Amino acid sequence: MDGHALTRASTIGPLVDVIDRDGGSVARVFRAADLPVRLVERPEMLVPLAFQTRLVVAAAREIGDDLLPVRLSAAAGTAGLGAYAGHVLGAPTLGAAIAIGNALVHRILQSATVTRLERRGATVRWLYRVDAALDAGRAENELLAVGYILAMLRRFAGSGWTPIRVELPGPPPPARAAIEQGFAAPLAEGPDAAVVFPADLLDVAGPGPATDPDAAALPAPHDLPSRVRAMVDLAMLDGAPRRERVAAWLGLSTRTMQRRLADDGLAFAALLAAVRADRAADLLGRGATVADVAFDLGYSDPAHFARAFRAWTGRPPSSFRAGRRPRRPAGP
């Protein structure tokens, strides 16, 4: 079992809008989940799944809405799945789409996750399971996932389509009737979160056209340096990254993280510098000011950032920025 699974920030859907609309405090919710508010600006960013579920739980508690995961997936639709949905929806048939989705889910959308199609006579079950430790929020995560499965199925079958049933593990939840209304589907107990529907739907043509959207692969479970880099990138949304926070996001103690990095001949400080250098080059290349880049990377003073950037690249950031600007065509 992968104790520190990662997922895409896009899967939280329009969380901030819902909290604002219902009179809650966005800052308090993100603080309770120990995640940067600014991650909503970077939907492709990787987030620790356990902390994403904490975020949804904290938001539901903040606004007093146990059906929040159902509402989020319905509001986001397939757009909440980013490039993953592009691959799935471009398939020629629903059966082909599910096969693509099952192969890609743990590669580009969410690690430590299994989706599988099971056929039982004239019906099929498209199930979802997370093979990772979730201290809290597993039920909320399953509701969110089922909502996204329904959104994808309805892109093929039509917005008014109703499955045979939705299955959730464990006894029926107290809000069963409300969940059924939100999903527009009957609810039953099952071994996994799943949507059950007629097998002949697998031959339905896709909404098309076929696409091949870019999607960076998730770091492999054993690739700690890449996982640390991803979490450093996330932490920079809140300023200067702290190694204790990065380690906690990965389900590790600070000492264990540093020891395992040392086993690979690496150090946290070197990975932090590499992420900052890449981020700085990207922002400067897109025309950001030196002061804005310094703030974005967690430096309190542009001069400190300028010295660090020169150490990384051998050039001052001002000249790097000028060198990346598109040249004006020669005039008469």
Rank of each mutant, 00 (worst) to 15 (best):
G23Y: 07
S25Y: 05
V26D: 08
V26E: 05
V26T: 08
A27H: 13
R28K: 14
V29S: 04
V29C: 06
F30N: 01
F30K: 00
R31Q: 14
R31I: 08
A33K: 02
A33H: 06
D34T: 11
D34E: 15
L35F: 08
P36G: 04
P36Y: 05
R38E: 15
L39Y: 05
E41D: 15
R42W: 10
R42H: 14
P43C: 11
P43M: 03
P43F: 06
P43T: 12
E44I: 09
M45W: 10
M45S: 13
V47R: 02
P48R: 07
L49E: 06
L49S: 11
L49V: 13
A50V: 07
F51A: 14
Q52D: 12
R54P: 04
L55T: 11
L55Q: 08
V56Q: 10
V56L: 09
V57C: 07
V57L: 06
V57M: 07
A58D: 08
A59G: 11
A59E: 09
A59F: 04
E62A: 10
I63C: 07
G64C: 03
G64Q: 02
L68A: 06
L68Y: 04
P69M: 10
V70E: 01
V70A: 07
R71A: 14
L72I: 07
S73Y: 14
A74W: 13
A79F: 10
G80T: 10
G82M: 06
G82R: 04
A83W: 09
A85C: 06
A85L: 01
G86A: 13
G86I: 02
V88N: 03
G90P: 05
G90I: 01
G90E: 03
A91M: 01
P92S: 04
P92A: 02
T93E: 09
T93W: 11
L94R: 01
L94A: 03
G95W: 12
A96D: 15
A96G: 15
A97K: 05
I98G: 00
I98Q: 02
I100S: 11
G101V: 02
G101F: 04
N102K: 08
N102L: 10
N102T: 15
N102R: 11
N102E: 15
L104M: 10
L104I: 02
V105N: 10
V105T: 12
H106F: 05
R107T: 03
R107W: 07
R107C: 05
R107G: 04
